[in-house]
């Protein structure tokens, strides 16, 4: 009986959650011995959700994202992506969009987008068509032949997003993708990202320092503490979709932002 219960519980979790983290901890070997970076991280991101992680610098947000991407191995706990554990990078399940300047400057925009498919030895015509379709999705059709230095900061991040989506992974991880952009471009890109997200129905885990960006984008904001990183709060954002810039001026938006800010600012 107990066995059955466990089994059904397991099924339920793997069906509902695109990303599931249980009891995750990470300790790294620092100069003065072992430094705990992350403790007791539990995270359940249902498929199609947009989850934003905020927290002070050095709280281990990026480490967590690296582990979700299979680029770093946790010390303890389990990570399931799309129902299966992830130990090494698996681009068919997870696409990653990094901070600025992660495009290859010697490749054109379309070559950057098709790069993951080149690694898979996909046929040229097929990967080119797929990359062009992705550029189209992010609003860059006609810019495929440009080199990164010929593109603006916002356009570069559009290319990065297209590259993250090119293998059609169910989960997209984004590590402060718009941090280097000016405020206006950043707002536009946030809006564009929501459009792309609603068209592709991906599960997104997004890291940012900007609380406004967090509330504007998220279904749920995860607030993390300073080192060792723990989850302090999970703030559901029940603002209606599609989100509009006007919502930022509402009391509800302000109250949500305030609730997050209160928890982060107390951290020394």
């Amino acid at each position: 009986m107990q066995h059955m219960a466990q089994l059904s519980l397991g099924q339920e979790q793997s069906q509902g959650a695109a990303v599931e983290v249980r009891g995750l901890g990470h300790i790294y070997a620092g100069r003065d011995g072992a430094v705990p970076a992350l403790t007791d991280i539990d995270l359940n991101v249902p498929a199609g959700r947009f989850v934003v992680i905020v927290g002070p610098s050095g709280c281990g947000k990026t480490s967590l994202l690296m582990m979700l991407a299979g680029l770093r191995t946790q010390t303890s706990g389990t990570i399931l992506v799309d129902g299966r554990s992830i130990a090494t990078p698996d681009p068919s399940r997870v696409g990653v969009v990094f901070q600025e300047a992660s495009l290859y400057p010697w490749l054109t925009a379309v070559e950057n987008v098709e790069f993951p498919l080149v690694l898979k030895n996909a046929p040229r015509d097929e990967r080119r068509a797929r990359a062009e379709a992705m550029l189209n999705l992010v609003g860059l059709s006609g810019f495929g032949g440009r080199y990164p230095h010929e593109l603006s900061g916002g356009m570069k991040q559009r290319v990065s997003i297209a590259r993250g989506l090119v293998q059609d992974p169910p989960v997209l991880l984004m590590d402060e993708p718009f941090a280097a952009l000016d405020e206006q471009t950043r707002m536009t890109m946030g809006h564009e990202l929501l459009r792309i997200w609603s068209q592709t129905s991906k599960t997104v885990v997004f890291i940012t320092h900007s609380l406004t960006e967090a509330v504007y984008l998220a279904d749920e904001v995860i607030v993390m503490s300073a080192r060792p990183g723990r989850i302090l709060d999970r703030v559901p954002i029940d603002l209606p979709r599609p989100r509009t810039y006007q919502m930022m001026a509402t009391d509800v938006f302000g109250a949500l932002r305030e609730r997050i800010w209160h928890q982060i600012r107390d951290v020394p």
Binding site: L71, P89, D90, P91, F98, A101, S102, F115, P116, L119
Partner: peptide, 21 residues
């Protein structure tokens, strides 16, 4: 740049692919 290598790794590049690409 280390970032170049990290991006390639996140897309499952092998060592030989990282060297060549």
């Amino acid at each position: 740049k280390a970032d170049y290598v990290l991006v390639a790794q996140s897309y499952g590049a092998t060592r030989a692919q990282i060297l060549r690409r």
